[in-house]
C-alpha cells in the first residue's frame, strides 16, 4: 500500500475552505441558538399556558428526533408543502439553530430554576422590577452555572455540522468526501479530515474542561 500525501497538500486550500465553513456554521448557529434557547426557556417559564405548551412541543420535537432527519425535513418538506425554498446554507443554519436552540433552552431553564426564590425576593424587596431582578441577579448567576453545559453543546455542535454535508453544504466533511470521490485516495483524505477536526476540536474540548473547572458552582 502506498500513500500519496501530495493529494492532501494539493487539496489543502479546499480543505481549509471547508474547515472555515465548519467554523462559520458553528458560530452562526450558536449566535442564533443562544437567544433562541433563552426565548424558549422564558416562554416555558412564563406561566402563559399556550406559549409554554408551544415552546415545550418545539423543544421536545427537536430533542427527540435525529438532527439528520431535521435537516432533511427542512430541505425537502418545507419547499414541497409550504413553498419555502431556502438555500442549502440557510437550510443548514435553520436546522442546526432549531436543534441547538432546543438543547440550549433546557440548559437555560435548568439554570434559571436553580436560582432560589430567596434571590428573587431579595431583589424584589429592594423595589426592583421582576425584569430588572432577572437581568441583574438571576440571569448572571444562572449563566455561570450553565456555562459548562453550554460549552459542551458547542463542542457537539461543532462536530454535528458535518451532518449538513448531506445537503451539499461545502463544510469540511463535504469537501473531504468530494476530494475522496475525485481522487480515490480514501485513506489520505479521511486522515487529513480527521486531523483537521481534531486540531480544531481538541483545543475546544480543553477549553470546556477549563470552563467546567473554573465555573464549578460555589456559594
Amino acid at each position: 500500500m502506498t500513500f500519496d500525501w501530495n493529494i492532501v497538500w494539493s487539496s489543502l486550500p479546499r480543505l481549509l475552505d471547508g474547515a472555515w465553513m465548519t467554523i462559520w456554521l458553528s458560530v452562526v448557529t450558536m449566535l442564533l441558538a443562544i437567544p433562541g434557547g433563552l426565548a424558549l426557556a422564558l416562554l416555558r417559564l412564563s406561566g402563559i399556558k399556550p406559549l409554554a405548551m408551544a415552546a415545550t412541543a418545539f423543544v421536545e420535537f427537536f430533542r427527540a428526533t435525529p438532527l439528520i432527519l431535521q435537516i432533511y425535513w427542512v430541505y425537502y418538506v418545507l419547499p414541497a408543502y409550504f413553498d419555502i425554498q431556502l438555500s442549502q446554507i440557510a437550510t443548514a443554519i435553520v436546522g442546526l439553530a432549531c436543534n441547538i436552540s432546543a438543547f440550549n433552552s433546557e440548559t437555560f431553564r435548568s439554570g434559571i430554576v436553580s436560582i432560589r426564590q430567596g434571590q428573587w425576593n431579595a431583589g424584589l424587596a429592594l423595589g426592583m422590577s421582576r425584569f430588572s431582578v432577572f437581568c441583574r441577579i438571576v440571569a448572571p448567576q444562572a449563566l455561570m452555572r450553565v456555562l459548562p453545559a453550554l460549552a459542551s453543546t458547542w463542542v457537539s455542535l461543532f462536530k454535528d455540522t458535518s451532518l449538513v454535508s448531506i445537503i451539499a453544504v461545502s463544510e469540511l466533511s463535504y469537501v473531504a468526501l468530494q476530494i475522496r470521490a475525485e481522487t480515490y485516495r480514501i485513506l489520505e483524505v479521511l486522515t487529513a479530515m480527521a486531523a483537521l477536526y481534531w486540531l480544531m476540536g481538541y483545543p475546544q474540548a480543553k477549553l470546556v474542561d477549563w470552563i467546567h473547572h473554573r465555573f464549578k458552582v460555589a456559594e
Binding site: 430567596g118 434571590q119 425576593n121 431579595a122 431583589g123 441577579i137 448572571p140 448567576q141 455561570m144
Partner: peptide, 11 residues
C-alpha cells in the same frame, strides 16, 4: 427587608 439566609447576591 433582612432575610434569615441573608440572600446577598453572590456574583
Amino acid at each position: 427587608m433582612v432575610f434569615q439566609n441573608f440572600e446577598l447576591f453572590p456574583h
